[in-house]
Design a protein around this nucleic acid. Sequence first.
DNA 1: ACCGCGAGGTTTTACGTATAACGTCGAGGT
DNA 2: ACCTCGACGTTATACGTAAAACCTCGCGGT
Lengths: 346, 346
Amino acid sequence: MTSAPQPAPTRPTSRDVARAAGVSQATVSLVLGGKWRGRVSEATAERVRGTAHDLGYRPNLAARSLRLGRTRTALLVVPALTNEFFARVYTGAAAVAAEHGFGVVLYPSPDGTGPARDPFASASTSLGGVIASSMAAGALDALRGAGLPLVMLDSDPADTGVAARVNLDIADGMRQVAGHLLALGHRRFVHLASAVDSWTFAARGRALHDALRAVPGTSVRTVSAALDVHAGRVAAERTLAAPGPRPTALVCDDDILAAGACKAARRLGLRVPEDLSVTGFDDLALATAVEPELTTVQLPAEQVGERGMAALLAVLDDRPVEPGSLPVHLVARGSSAPAPPDAPRS
Amino acid sequence: MTSAPQPAPTRPTSRDVARAAGVSQATVSLVLGGKWRGRVSEATAERVRGTAHDLGYRPNLAARSLRLGRTRTALLVVPALTNEFFARVYTGAAAVAAEHGFGVVLYPSPDGTGPARDPFASASTSLGGVIASSMAAGALDALRGAGLPLVMLDSDPADTGVAARVNLDIADGMRQVAGHLLALGHRRFVHLASAVDSWTFAARGRALHDALRAVPGTSVRTVSAALDVHAGRVAAERTLAAPGPRPTALVCDDDILAAGACKAARRLGLRVPEDLSVTGFDDLALATAVEPELTTVQLPAEQVGERGMAALLAVLDDRPVEPGSLPVHLVARGSSAPAPPDAPRS
DNA sequence: ACCGCGAGGTTTTACGTATAACGTCGAGGT
DNA sequence: ACCTCGACGTTATACGTAAAACCTCGCGGT
């Protein structure tokens, strides 16, 4: 692409640009930094920009950081990237960051509550700010103490020491699930909750219970499981095989648990959705890979990342952060159907 | 944890440590840099290390990078993090990096063949090196031209300009699949290939065809599809509904395609595995979420990342890189079974 | 005639680190 | 008694950038 055949032995510095353009290094810095209103003539500025471009100049980020005492890098703290939701959050955050000349470095928090290795070990010394998921609770205290702007994702609004917050309307999502299943005639529910202790899961459970409590004649039992298919299957199997009237709807905190629940149902000879409706949460890729496809709640994961990064940039510029939660919506697919007629006993 | 209650207004520098320890800044640098054999007495070194620790000293990475002209940061170039395989590769790479004081910054290549935005825009100016997946072909040329050590993951051994290479024994994996299905009596195959143009998928196809060609009486037809469940289902559906003797085994380049294929089979009234065996590749989380669970090839994704980072570190230290491909192995699950008896026609 | 002033720059400095180049001091050799 | 030399440090410098402080005109006002 470039017509310059030099093997790039050493990159041009702002001083090289200055020399080539016949100005001082300071002028180059001013022009390229955009702070030259009334300090440098438009003609000179244009010439500097031209030579900078011709030389393929790129500012040395290390030098800039050293000078400024802060980097244009944000730390994104998430539980794990193998969690599709967070991979998508990262994608969104990185996209917005790139537009503003920011970088994003990840800190995968060991797990919810871990020994919390130094979150800054993997990052540059002085970051521009931190964006953290509430699920990465392990590292939170260390982050708060660092004196950096902190943007929290999907977190408890009661938390303090937070510069901005990007929330999903989780409760509304769960209300939609409840409404959907109630409209289908379901009355006996099981809530298959995630055993992960985090605000978002707590919020899901609370919203479901609140929604169901409002309707007379409903019952709901809660069981919890680790966040993997196998654990979900085992927990669901136990619940479904328990004595007493069998639930007709299994509301899961996560698509992964829902997938496990579907397997449990099949093992017990129950058809989904004819005998048992199962709902997930998150709308992961998995949701449309399993059979039947999962009725679930779609979360705008990329948007969470985008808004998170945008919020951080706003905070850094002392601009106000636009508030409001991101809407989520139910996607009705094949795993939910009208409740079966009330049979005497299985 | 720390008993120091100061709000961390400014971090201690090496000069602060020097002052506190009663030595010069240079000595601190020497001691902490580990290059003091015979230049500083053991007693002084110990004292310096002690005060550094007491003060909570952490070197300023920006300053170090500026001085050294390179950073202890590697760029990991992958197609997308939402691909579980690469999320796992990242995890492995980041773990090894952290052990050696390295950071990892991601560059999600737009897609296989894209306009290839500047890979360095998101990263620090001068990286320590680059680790790139062969699937991120779009950015490759830019990377090669940067004069940085380049470690390629799962890539064509014929590629040049590569400092080290970490490969999976993809061909052997596909041979295991072929052997497994042949032993089950299958003779009529379809290869559901990924439409993504990359070395790894080409290698999978080649290995399958080679393995089957060696056995008389086998046939194999290839169809390709984009790498998502829906595309896989559509492609499989078309192939399975085509006239002529129906294949009994559907070998997929990826678990995602295999999940789609299973759905296609069900739609056509075929039972998996009784009427049709389906195999995947990669052993994603999805493989055990669908029903039946997929027979697939397990790839040590984390190890790929670990070895990739280790190789980069070795190259940077002028140490030899331990060669050899990583073994992969077949995991036989519920989606493959003996071939059905040869029926006249469906 | 002289001052003030603003446009359009330039000189200088500091950021924190790594390391090359340079002391200093006491012991051992002659 | 003087020189050498190794052990143990120190001083000085450079990395590339941003920005404060400082120059130098030419021009309009009085």
